[in-house]
Nucleic acid binder design. Sequence first.
DNA 1: TTGCTCCTCACGTCACGTGAGGTGGC
DNA 2: TTGCTCCTCACGTCACGTGAGGTGGC
Lengths: 276, 276
Amino acid sequence: VGFMNTAGFMTIGEFAGRTRLSPKALRLYDELGLVVPARVDPSSGYRLYAEDQVERARIVGLLRQVEMPLARIAVVVGLDGPAASQAVEEWWLEVETTVGARRELVSYLRTRLAGTQPVAYDIEVRAMPERSLVAISRHVHKAATPAFFDEAFTRLRRAAPGIVGIAGVPFVIFYGEVSEDSDGPIELCRPVVSDLTVEADGDRQLRIEPAHEEAYVRLASKDMGWPAMVPACDALDHWLGTHQRRPAGPLRQLLIADQRTATPETLACDLAIPLR
Amino acid sequence: VGFMNTAGFMTIGEFAGRTRLSPKALRLYDELGLVVPARVDPSSGYRLYAEDQVERARIVGLLRQVEMPLARIAVVVGLDGPAASQAVEEWWLEVETTVGARRELVSYLRTRLAGTQPVAYDIEVRAMPERSLVAISRHVHKAATPAFFDEAFTRLRRAAPGIVGIAGVPFVIFYGEVSEDSDGPIELCRPVVSDLTVEADGDRQLRIEPAHEEAYVRLASKDMGWPAMVPACDALDHWLGTHQRRPAGPLRQLLIADQRTATPETLACDLAIPLR
DNA sequence: TTGCTCCTCACGTCACGTGAGGTGGC
DNA sequence: TTGCTCCTCACGTCACGTGAGGTGGC
C-alpha cells in the first residue's frame, strides 16, 4: 500500500488510527455521507482518506461520544463553525431538559420505593352527562405540544365561535405517553351544545361521549406538567385498586382555569380518569 | 371474557390500561420474568393479571421512564423497599456522572467548533530506546478501571520486586476507548531490565517494545482523566497533521509521578503517541 | 507460502412498535 | 356474520461489534 501513502492518502486502518474511530464505524459514516473517503479504488473498493478529512472525522467522533444521533450530527457538520456550535448547544439543552425530568422522577420513585407516606390527594368522583365534543387528535412529541395546543385551540374556537356553542371546559386526553421518543397521540376536546353543526376541517371531528363517572384530583398549575403530574397519576391508580373500579379510558386533563394567566399556585386543572 | 373479570383477573388489555404499559411491553416483561401474569389460560394462552400485580408493573414502567435497562430493573424489583430505593440511587449517580462527562465534552466541542483559539500545548518529541516490558492487558469498563490498576500494579511489583529490575516509569496504553459502554482494552506496562526473567502468571506477559520516537504533552493531575484529557489528545492529533507524522500505535499515558500523593496541579503524566 | 489488511454480507444487541396471519367469544 | 381482543412469529429501529468468507500485495 506504499503508493497510497506517497500520494498522501490513508487506508481505512490508518485513518482509524488517526481519528480513534473503528473501521466499521468509518464504513457506516461513508454510507451515510458523514465522512466520505476522498477516493475509492475502483478495482479493490479500498477506501482512501486524505489528511484534511481527519478534522471532520474527529468532530463526528466527539459528537458520538456525547451521544448525539448520527442524523443530527449530519446536520451539525453541514453548518459553519458558529452555527454548528449553536446547534450543539441547542441539542444539549434538550438533553439537559430530559435529564432534569428523569432526575425528578427518580426522586419520586425513591420515596415511593422506600415506602415513605406519599402526599395525600383528595380524590373525588362525579357523574358526567352525555356530551357532544369537537376534538382534534394528533401524534406529537413533547417538543411539538405547545405548537399543537396553539393551533388546536384556534381551530376549536373557529368551530364554536364566542361562547354561544360552548358547553364545558376544554380537556386533553392522553392516549399514549407524550415525551421525546413517544408521541401520544393526544387529543384536545371541547364540549359543545348538542345541536352544533361543525364543518369538516382536516382532523377536527365532532363526536358524542357517553355518560360516565370520573374520578379526579384538582391540581395546581405547577403540578400539571411532566413529570410533576406523576404522583397524582399514581394516586388515581391506587384509588382504582382500593375502590375496585376499572378505568373506562385513558387519563385526561380538564383545563379549569385560563392557562395564560395562571400563577404556579392557581388550581388550574383536574386530572381525571373515566370509570366503568 | 366476563368470567375472568368476576374471578378478579384482568386481560392484558385491561392490565395495560391500568398500568399505562403497552401489551407488547407486558409480553416482553412476562418473557423476561419481570411481571409474570398470575395465570395463563392453558387453551388460549391468554395472560391473566391480578390486581396486586399493578403496583409492580407501575414500578417497572416508572423505572423504564427514567431509562433504567430492563436487566437492572430485574435486580431492583427483586429487592425490598429500602434496598430498592438505594439501588435506584446508586444507578442514578452513575447516570449523573456520565452526563457530567458529556457536559464537559460538549463545552469543549462548542469552543472547538466556534473556532476559538484553543489552549496551546507544549508538544515535544523524544527518542525511546528498545525496552523490555512486563505488561498486563484487560478489557475493562470505566467503573472497573481503579480495581484493575490496583491489581495490575501489585502484580507488576511482584514481577520486578524493589527497584532492582525496574527500568523506567510505568505507563498505560489505551487500545480502545474506556467508558461505560466501551471496554478498552487497556494495558498497564512497566519497563524492566532486559535480562529479567518473569514467570508466567495469567495475563501478565513479558515483551519487547522496539525503539521509536514519541510525541508527548506533559499534563497536570487534574487534566489526566476523561474527558479532561480530550483537548490534549486533540492537540497531539493536530500536531501529527501539521508535522506530517503518522502514529505507530495508540495513545499512552506515562505515569511520571506518584498518583497517590499528587495534588491537582502536580505534573503527573505524559500523554504520548508513538511515531513511525 | 504465510500474515496482514482490506472488502462485502449477515447476524446480534436493546426495548419495544408495527404489521401479518390466525383464533375465540359476543 | 362482523368487530374486538387475544395469540405467536417476524421484521424494523440505532450505531455499531463481531465473525464469515473471499481478495490482493508484501
